[in-house]
Simulated scan of single mutants.
Amino acid sequence: MPMPAEDPTQTPPAPSLPSEAASVTVAYQLPGRAASPQQQLFRDCFLDLMESEEAILPSAASPLGRLWQLIRSPDSTLDECAEVIALDPALTARVFRIANSPLYGGTSSTTKEAVLQFGYARLRQFVFSAQIIERFSKMEMPPGWEHFWIRNVFSAQFVERIAGKYFKTTGSEYLAGMLHDTGWLMLASFFPDEFRAVLESPNEVPLEQAEKEVFSFSHADASSLICAKSHLPARVVNAVAAHHHPLSLPDAATLKKPEESETLLAVLLFLCDRLADDISLPIGGRSTGLAPEEVLSGPEWDWLDRYGKKPEFRAIAEEELDRAYQVGAVFLA
């Protein structure tokens, strides 16, 4: 079923990413301590990589970089976005493929028509996905991880959509979903032998625990540093770091506004991972091993009660899975 088009006269979302990001101090520190000289070497090497690697933000001079800035500006127009997209043939082709796909049901013949079919919120998703996948696409993908980017696109779409049931989203939520597992790619690319040992650990040992036994830090810790490196909001950085144990965050015991709660975002990432495993997007062939009725249960699920009636998580997940495959077909072809 095609997605309904947004009102093309709608103003772009408020640019909360830059103002939120001002609270982030990029210190590139890892939690925990090395238990051996080998673990200390891994920690030092990873921190050196973080210092040398580029952020996910595109070059300001590139069409994608200019588009990135436009979609975060309250003064930009869709016409301006269409003009910038037209400067990049590859970007233009991708926009047409998505806008005219069964997902959106469009019949656009010009860049402007395609952008109007998207609307601001979906154009923002498109730009974020394009940059992140391009940024990490050259890194080594472990065997059995063919669905990694489909899973991440699904996570981004799902988390932003569910978050939107609680508050007006800003794009931070989409980025959290896209980036929360990218630490895996860093570990797999730069420490392939050690990461292979992690993947070969017994199924009853959670991946995060196996990672800490080898490296002294987890992929969640690595992903949070990637978010910090790119000057994303502190709420995103901390939620990504804690997405396997969201109720450990300091604000879990308080009732904050949903748009300010690190725990709420971390809980959504946690539940999203469970659903991804349950709908045939497990990582490395491993899953939670939970029965379908157990996926949406437990203290994290119950914690959401403080914000009122829960959205239809599973129905939304099934819809977003279909969208993720169609979006992935554009970026991963």
Rank of each mutant, 00 (worst) to 15 (best):
D7H: 06
P8V: 02
T11Y: 09
P13G: 09
P13H: 11
A14L: 12
A14M: 07
P15Y: 10
L17H: 00
S19D: 03
A22W: 02
S23H: 08
V24F: 00
V24I: 10
V24P: 01
T25G: 08
V26F: 15
V26L: 08
A27F: 06
Y28H: 13
Y28I: 04
Q29I: 07
Q29L: 14
L30R: 07
L30N: 04
R33E: 13
A34S: 15
A35Y: 01
S36M: 04
Q38M: 10
Q38A: 15
Q39D: 03
L41S: 13
R43G: 10
D44Y: 08
C45L: 11
L47T: 06
L49E: 00
M50C: 14
E51A: 13
E51K: 12
S52P: 00
S52L: 09
E54Q: 14
L57E: 12
S59N: 07
S59P: 00
A60S: 11
A60R: 14
P63E: 04
L64C: 04
L64H: 01
L64G: 01
L64M: 09
L64Q: 04
L64F: 02
G65S: 03
R66D: 00
L67Q: 06
L70P: 04
R72A: 14
S73C: 09
S73V: 03
S76K: 03
S76H: 02
L78N: 06
L78T: 02
D79N: 04
E80L: 08
E80S: 10
C81G: 02
V84S: 05
V84E: 05
I85W: 08
I85T: 07
L87W: 04
L87V: 01
P89R: 11
A90S: 15
L91G: 05
T92A: 15
R94D: 11
R94S: 12
V95L: 13
R97L: 11
R97N: 13
I98T: 15
A99D: 08
A99K: 13
S101N: 05
P102S: 10
P102A: 09
